[in-house]
Amino acid sequence: MSFIELKNVYKVYKNGVTAVADVNINIKKGDFVFIIGQTACGKSSLIKLLYREERPTKGQVIVGGINVAKLKNNRVYKLRRKIGIVFQDYKLLPKLTVYENVAFVLQSYGYKEADIKPRVIDALTRVGLKEKLRSFPNELSGGEQQRVCIARAIVNKPKVLVCDEPTGNLDATTSKEIMNVIDSINKELGTTIIMATHDQDIVNRMKKRVIALKDGMLIGDWEKGSYKLDEAA
């Protein structure tokens, strides 16, 4: 049974640009999927449809049993609690420490302080940042900030981790480290990973399922694939 299901999904923006056209994807629980393509191929739009930052113009998007297209604005948070999101630009709160940046997620869900602390420490240990609890984001390197972002995304133990170009702002070595962290989350916690990227090295090295997009259309879907856009067309 699919955990994530996209059926004939279209996304047309108000200015007439078609970002996603007739896309059908099924993703099983525990899968690790790359979504690849050139800039402006619809990767980000597709990712945003998953966590309901965008609504599909047509078609069905189902994530963990929730019909995303029909979700009301004031219910969106229920979907987002099942999804961890990793951003290219980290989106950390500059005035909060590393610990607070991760903890405020659980605090805002109304968890008890006693339950929050071990989970935050656990998440930060997993990404290797246990030593920097009291640092502020501007005292961290890009790679470390991305680790905080990942820790924040997994602290609620989500079923699926959605990553939008997580290595986009990082150098090759740091990217590799970040990918190791994400891979270990997939293997050890069984979290489904969906990652948009245009980093060929990463995709070729990891040998995971690859979904290729071009001009908003699905042009390839390979198990243990590599970064190839021309061949499929």
């Binding site: 948070y77 229920k78 979907l79 987002r80 999101i85 989106k91 997620v105």
Partner: peptide, 8 residues
């Protein structure tokens, strides 16, 4: 950010 991490 609060919206994105699932705060109601």
């Amino acid at each position: 950010i609060m919206r994105l991490v699932g705060t109601s």
